[in-house]
Each structure stands twice: as C-alpha cells, then as structure tokens.
C-alpha cells in the first residue's frame, strides 16, 4: 500500500530524525519512485544504504536513508526485508533511481549476500573477487588461518592450543 504525502509528512514531523517506513519487496520501487518524484516530497538524495542481519527474525533488512536537498527535509528510512537464505535474498535495486546507491548496494551484496535485481554492475567491492561467503552475516565463521600472537586471550588462546601453536611462558604459567 502506497503511503500518501500526508503520512510521510506526519512521519517526518512526528519523530524528527527517526522517521522510518517499512515496505514489502514488491512495492519498493513504486514507493521509492513516488518519494523521489512527488513535488511535495522530492527525496532526491539517497544518503545511506545499508543492510542489517536480523538473525533471530531470520531476515536481512536493507535500509535506505533518504533526504531532500531541494526541500531540505529528512531523514526518512525506507526499510525492506528479505529472507536470509542466499537464493531467496533478493531485493529490487534502487540504483536506477538514485545513482548514489550503486556502490553501497554493491557493498551490501559483498558483505551480506543481498542480491539487488536491476543493479548495473553487481560484484564484490571491498572483498576480493574470488572470496566466498559474506563476512558481515552473524553466522559467518572466519577461516582458521590464525597468526600466532604472543598474548592470546580467551578464544584466541583456545584456538592456539587446539592448533598446537606455541603460547608464551606467561600464558602457560597461568594455567598451572
């Protein structure tokens, strides 16, 4: 269901700095186009695009923070959720509307695995191209290429002992 100008106005006035609008994936592009083109809203500046991994709710939420340069209002957060499973984690891309989403959507794809349909050039941006897996997900397990550190702590010490690495005298003594 498309929001009306009045609803958006109320959102912006009600919680200044915290206005957010949750939409479904199917209506994302329509709502975004409306927000951008409506002459009373004119959200022409997409400031921040990020993804949040809500592992407990089993979804990844993509958040678009919009401002208006022409009318100097904002921010409005546009939130859309997608399932966590990699094959189903797809969201329509808003890069055709706001060019500034280009790199940030690439980053969300790189680090979270969210595929943006309609993005002109969706590939990894921060990690190297051959990297597998998506590091910022909550269930990401880093690879076991642990480099020896002389003052291991907690889980680092446990990993060192498990891998048969050497630990310094001070750490060994404390185990006595």
């Amino acid at each position: 269901m498309m929001p009306t100008v009045e609803q958006i106005r109320q959102l912006l006035a009600g919680e200044p700095g915290n206005a957010s609008l949750r939409v479904e994936r199917e209506e994302l592009v329509a709502v975004a186009t409306f927000l951008k083109t409506d002459p009373q809203l004119q959200f022409d500046f997409c400031s921040c695009v990020t993804a949040v991994d809500y592992i407990k709710q089993d979804c990844i939420e993509v958040v678009y923070t919009l401002y208006s340069v022409a009318l100097k209002h904002g921010p409005l957060s546009l939130k859309v959720r997608a399932p966590r499973a990699l094959e189903q984690c797809r969201v329509p891309s808003l890069t055709p509307l706001w060019r500034g989403c280009e790199f940030q959507e690439r980053e969300a794809f790189d680090l979270f695995g969210v595929r943006f349909d309609g993005h002109p050039d969706l590939r990894r941006i921060l990690m190297w191209d051959e990297f597998e897996d998506h590091p910022m997900r909550k269930d990401y397990v880093p690879p076991m290429d642990y480099e020896w550190e002389p003052t291991p702590h907690g889980e680092t010490l446990a990993r060192a002992l498990a891998q048969g690495g050497t630990v310094p005298t001070s750490a060994r003594e404390s185990k006595k």
């Binding site: 550190e149 002389p150 003052t151 310094p168 001070s170 750490a171 003594e173 404390s174």
Partner: peptide, 10 residues
C-alpha cells in the same frame, strides 16, 4: 597481578 602483559604491537 602475577602476570601483566601488554602487547605493544597490538
């Protein structure tokens, strides 16, 4: 403290 190590490379 018996042991107080600071890893100054970290």
């Amino acid at each position: 403290p018996k042991v107080f190590d600071i890893d100054i490379s970290v």
